[in-house]
Nucleic acid binder design. Structure first.
Lengths: 129, 129
DNA sequence: ATTTTAAGTACCCTTTTAGATACTACGGCA
DNA sequence: TGCCGTAGTATCTAAAAGGGTACTTAAAAT
């Protein structure tokens, strides 16, 4: 069993982490916390997609919400938006270099989450939103 | 520059990830998304703390909110709550084994977030909540 | 002349989350 | 006898996030 101390030493805690407003972890959480943002990044990690292609993959997201999330991800520099000046419009979304760098975090979250679910199945059901 | 394909191959994507409700990453996001939860876990990674000790470290959190977050973290199995039957009451909070396992994710988020902030300082300011 | 298509906006309403304030129980202490 | 400290509840209000429906634009197809 690992001691708190051991873990503590691998932890690169800094002053700014202790203030919620300047904490880099909290920032990342904010980057990812819009509804379906994780899934959008996950899909775009496979291939660039057009607006309606994404929409088909996320059938429970309204057009408005998808636009909102995409705009937010773009503003945060995680995805790019490429407009082809044609009619009807063609708009292509993909991960930026920065966006690709956040994928390993999602993978790690996936690893923990999958473990967690396995254990949860053995005991009580997990609260989901 | 890493290609999408390379990253894709390191990605252990599974069916369940493609449905928002059953996605382990989304689960982890939910585990961490209550306000100040990250910070609470971060503090408890150092040492166990009593309710009012935590409160002093989080001066902008009301008693109610702190209780709420602690209850939620406890229900999710990330922290434990140890009640000493004395008066005035003494209640001690600490990370469970599971809670300690989520810390590396926070560290990784910290790493990305810190990088991100460095770059953001050079260009436009980041949207924070 | 009307319909279709892609990629949106605009406007309004509901739900969720968070914050403010006040109150409680219990025993020890002055 | 009444106040202090710990660890809370309870209640109400405000702000943020999310959802539903309708409208837009411009060219090409029917």
């Amino acid at each position: 069993m690992t001691s708190n101390k051991e873990i503590h030493e691998t932890c690169f805690m800094k002053e700014k982490c202790l203030k919620y407003e300047t904490c880099p972890m909290v920032l990342v959480q904010n980057l990812l916390s819009g509804k379906r943002k994780i899934l959008i990044l996950w899909y775009l990690n496979y291939e660039t997609l057009r607006f309606n292609e994404l929409r088909k993959k996320l059938p429970d997201v309204t057009q408005k919400m998808l636009t909102q999330q995409l705009r937010s991800l773009e503003a945060d520099g995680l995805i790019y938006r490429n407009i082809y000046p044609v009619t009807p419009p063609k708009v292509e979304y993909g991960l930026t270099e920065l966006g690709r760098k956040i994928i390993p975090i999602l993978e790690m979250m996936h690893g923990f989450g999958a473990d967690y679910l396995e254990k949860a199945e053995l005991s009580s059901p997990v609260q989901e939103k």
